[in-house]
Write a protein that binds this DNA or RNA. Structure first.
Lengths: 253, 253
DNA sequence: CGGAATTTTGACGATGCTCAACAACGGTGG
DNA sequence: CCACCGTTGTTGAGCATCGTCAAAATTCCG
């Protein structure tokens, strides 16, 4: 455990190419922020943005790094700027379930909680805008619009979580794998190649779908032999050959 | 389907014993409300309470009645005052999963959504305080404290939902059943008898735990033969004989 | 090229679902 | 009070699905 010590460690600042001074979160800098239009802070006016930018610090995190451990005191939250994170719950014996993926613009960590409830791990080299939780909550107090936006996001996350409860309890391995690929295809299918790149390995796919690695691998192989997908063996590139049938197997009404 | 037409039907008002006039939601009446201290409206001052009570209408709902159908336009939400409701998601083929139970003081229905996402059904004879969604959202706009309270509740619900994702995907039938009884015992164990009354039948327990009725029944029988529980056959009364072992089986750290 | 990590494949077994029969309970009407 | 019937819960047999263990194949990266 805890191989990734000092996760939120020393405040080293990344340097951007051609930028001699470290990137600091000032409201000026926020205009260059890649997630400025989608993140929570998109709802802020200039005055409020100053409040938030004053407390935000940029951090880079390598893939595999754990940034929050379940059970630790909850002192930070952050906006994902680049990369991706997984939020996992696990039983005492170590069985694991990925409960949510966070992409650029999403918030990781929990507000209004004194203890971290979910372990958060980078699944790719990532960058995020880190806030002390207490300060973040004060900004929330001061900005009703940001609070409303957080409420809407939380409600959306709740809907998504409940939908996944149904998937995990009542869908077969085949349906889950097909549904996962289908959802990916909806989002980021490369139209030209008719293919997509799996953002996670088999292991993380298994943790996401509540299956074993072997079952995921077998179901992918079956979808290939059925002529629905064309996945290169051991690979992360996946072409969808028969979209309607994929949707049918996934059980999309 | 839809045997329970006119769910939110005609606005018949219940009469209380010894109360000749129908119960209307005025702020005066709110002082008599059984969930006044726990519901969302507990955060309101008198002025705000007037706003809310002006739009709230009392309804009684018999057990089994569906009050919201997934897919319908979303025009109402409500506070549960008495009884209990289940919120269910289901696959196109009809496999079902109970995603949340709502008890007195809880909010049912979804704010900020144009379509109902989850079917809501009374699991006991119930009473609720019904609001038009649009009007409820206006009250939310006007009362930051109520909005904050809703945010906190939604965050709690999200945590609960995610925890249940782990249960559904990674725990055995035995662990789930034991965990369910254990959680019940924490809440409403009758100290004198050392027993508790199951609030739902086997079918609903199965839908809650993501199991079949038969598996639930068998696991309960096993816990009985193991000397952990004393459940009368076909019954709803359940004594916990060995609390530590129940917790151990449930996998409580 | 070599070694580690990831993925695939096979064999096997346990878990939990389905189907089916039966038992217990609750209400209704004679 | 009791026979009847629908609902709910229990139990058994058989079987499909999926997890586990183990070994081989493939890829990645130095």
């Amino acid at each position: 455990m805890r191989d990734g010590e000092a996760a939120w460690g020393k405040p080293f600042l990344t340097r951007r190419a051609g930028c001699a001074t470290p990137w600091r979160m000032t409201s000026q800098r926020c205009f260059l922020c890649p997630v400025r239009s989608t993140a929570l802070c998109a709802s802020l006016d200039d005055t409020e943005l100053d409040l938030l930018s004053a407390i935000g610090k940029l951090r880079t995190v390598p893939a595999g790094q754990v940034i929050l451990w379940a059970g630790d005191p909850n002192s930070s939250c952050a906006t994902v700027m680049r990369g991706a994170f997984k939020m996992t719950a696990s039983t005492p014996e170590g069985r694991e379930q990925i409960v949510e993926l966070a992409h650029p613009g999403d918030l990781v960590g929990q507000v209004f909680a004194d203890e971290v409830g979910l372990t958060v791990t980078a699944v790719a080299d990532s960058e995020l805008c880190l806030y002390p939780r207490a300060a973040f909550e004060r900004v929330l107090d001061a900005s009703p619009r940001m609070e409303r936006r957080l409420l809407e996001r939380t409600l959306t996350a709740l809907d998504g979580s409940r939908e996944r409860m149904l998937d995990l309890s009542r869908r077969s391995a085949r349906e889950r794998v097909a549904g996962f690929i289908h959802a990916l295809a909806e989002r980021d299918l490369d139209e030209e190649r008719g293919a997509l790149t799996l953002p996670v390995g088999r292991g993380e796919m298994a943790d996401l779908l509540g299956l074993s690695i072997e079952t995921v691998s077998r179901q992918l192989a079956r979808l290939r032999s059925d002529g629905v997908l064309d996945i290169e063996k051991c690979g992360r590139s996946c072409a969808v050959l028969d979209h309607p049938r994929l949707a049918a197997i996934a059980g999309i009404s």
